[in-house]
Design a binder for these strands. Structure first.
Length: 496
RNA sequence: GGUCCUUUGGCCGAGUGGCUAGGCAAGGCUCUGCAAAAGCCUCUACAGCGGUUCGAAUCCGCUAGGGACCUCCA
């Protein structure tokens, strides 16, 4: 089945055809590591992790490049700007690389909690200054950039005369040329719409590199162009990122790369929508960010509890990536319960053995199951409709639970169907959606101890010694372990 | 001000013109020593007003609310 991807550039769903058969080059704009990652960051990196996993499942070999933006005008919160004017001893001063390292580590830690796969290449902007300078020189040579006061600007007006500047973000060039913004260094530009490729560093600027135009630092957009070109080629398949990057970041990337490499860089542009909080985009300037560490610990005024990274992952999968997703503690709590239910059905399914029958006792049910399963791929192929796949899984969960409880006869479902069901759940839950058990109930010693308690409780129940049986269950509950009596006298347990 | 998007049941969220997802919450029932879990059932919504159509949550227009981008941003 062909995969269809909504291309932001053409504003429609298109069949995905990689440039090199069997291979996919995918670039996703990574974080700026001048601060701690927050919930807003979770969406693109979790979503594109799903894209990576799904493409891999479809048999593509994916090179996934995600950068770290560690160059720019950095300061750490709370540390004052005076720090930058250097009369202090080296160790007392703000060392940008130290700051960048700290937040990079924190970012990596958080996304390991989310069970995101690591990118194939994770290039840093500071590690590619040479490539960026080379690219800028090429653009100057092509006549689309000019030097002004130690800075280099891209000539948007000239570019727009022969190229469609503004198409990706739906912008009209004339409007952009008229924008009146008071920005730093605006007077150096020939035109307000021009953007910086290289910026001259003022004396107090702490991050600076030598360049043909004097000491300075790269413009924000050029790093992605330079690194994507280096690792994926002049033209590659997928470029992803948040919607807020469409303009000016991605629009500028297209312009730079097109001039430098004489070809449009990207085949499929993919943009995820924002996570909002009370209907407003989560962001530093709105003062409404929930940092990932706060989310995991529950330590934030807007949170009524701590949330497990898997709950967040599931929450994100429950909505389509191009829709805005409104955060609330209640919504996340609902996801937590939903995930628990689904995950338990999944674990149960993996343990249940199919009846040894090639023909289904309940043909209609058997067919229904197969239809739901068929749709998994159909939905994913339709621009990654993860919520629909989950909906089907929730249709299947009662079937699984009913088989366990004997409410549906084991031989109602044929062996091949049952085996397929098992396989598909494992594939989607674990491999494609990247979900994991929320609790660490895989400790062998704990399992053994629990088995002992269960044996004692069973004995007590047989003797109708309910004081003992209740005591075991109640005290375990106090510790956060939920013991459940199953039909037929068996017992199971989960960690809350 | 410009460009674009959005408005779905108590809450979160899918929705391709007709078959009206799913989750959470709530209520009822079944199972059960009790409990939990599980199962079954109930809860039919699409901002408002017009229009197109045999038929619209889905297309068009207007009104109202919300949002994003135009500046660093996932």
């Amino acid at each position: 089945m062909p995969l269809k991807i909504y291309n932001s550039y053409s504003r429609q769903k298109e069949e995905f055809k990689p440039i090199t058969p069997g291979h996919v080059g995918m670039y996703v704009c990574g974080p700026t590591v001048s601060g701690e990652s927050h919930l807003g960051h979770a969406r693109p990196y979790i979503f594109f992790d799903i894209v990576l996993r799904y493409l891999t499942h479809k048999g593509f070999k994916v090179r996934y490049v995600r950068n770290i933006t560690d160059a720019g005008h950095f300061e750490e919160e709370g540390r004052e700007a005076e720090d930058k004017i250097s009369k202090k001893a080296v160790l007392e001063k703000l060392e940008p690389m130290e700051l960048v390292q700290k937040y990079t580590n924190l970012f990596h830690w958080a996304f390991r909690q989310f069970n995101c796969m690591e990118p194939s290449i994770e290039p840093t902007a500071t590690g590619h200054i040479v490539e960026q300078i080379n690219m800028i020189e090429k653009i100057i040579k092509e006549g689309y950039a000019y030097v002004s006061n130690g800075s280099v600007y891209f000539d948007v007006k000239k570019y727009a005369a022969s190229h469609d500047y503004g198409k990706l973000s739906g912008r009209i060039i004339d409007d952009l040329l008229e924008t009146t913004r008071e920005l730093d260094g605006q007077e150096e530009k020939r035109d307000l719409a021009d953007f910086a490729l290289w910026k001259h560093a003022a004396p107090e600027h702490i991050m600076r590199w030598a360049s043909p135009w004097g000491e300075g630092f790269p413009g924000w957009h050029i790093e992605c162009s330079a690194m994507a070109t280096k690792y994926l080629g002049a033209e590659f398949d997928i470029h992803g990122g948040g919607m807020d990057l469409q303009f000016p970041h991605h629009e500028s990337e297209i312009a730079q790369s097109t001039i430098c490499n004489h070809t449009a860089p990207v085949r499929y542009w993919m943009h995820n929508n924002m996570i909002t909080i009370n209907g407003r985009k989560m962001g530093k300037s709105y003062n409404n960010v929930i940092k990932l560490t706060e989310l995991f610990s529950g330590n934030h005024p807007l949170l009524t509890q701590a949330f497990h990274p898997m709950t967040v992952r599931f929450f994100i999968l429950q909505s389509h990536y191009r829709s805005p997703l409104d955060f609330s503690s209640e919504a996340l709590a609902a996801s937590e319960k939903a995930l628990k239910r689904l995950w338990e059905a999944h674990e149960l399914l993996q343990k249940l053995q199919p009846a040894d029958t090639d023909t289904a006792g309940d043909v209609a049910l058997d067919e229904k199951i197969n239809n739901w399963l068929n749709e998994f791929e159909e939905f994913m192929d339709d621009d990654f409709s993860t919520p629909k796949v989950l909906a089907n899984m929730f249709e299947l969960a009662p079937v699984i639970n009913s088989v366990k409880d004997g409410l549906i006869a084991a031989d109602a479902i044929s062996k091949p169907t049952w085996q397929r069901l098992k396989k598909m759940f494992k594939l989607y839950m674990e491999d494609i959606f990247g979900l994991q058990a929320v609790t660490a109930a895989n400790n062998e010693m704990l399992k053994a101890v629990m088995q002992l308690l269960i044996d004692i409780r069973k004995d007590a129940k047989v003797k109708k010694d309910y004081a003992t049986s209740d005591r075991i269950r109640i005290q375990l509950a106090e510790m956060g372990i939920l013991l459940k009596d199953e039909k037929g006298g068996e017992m199971s347990w989960t960690i809350e």
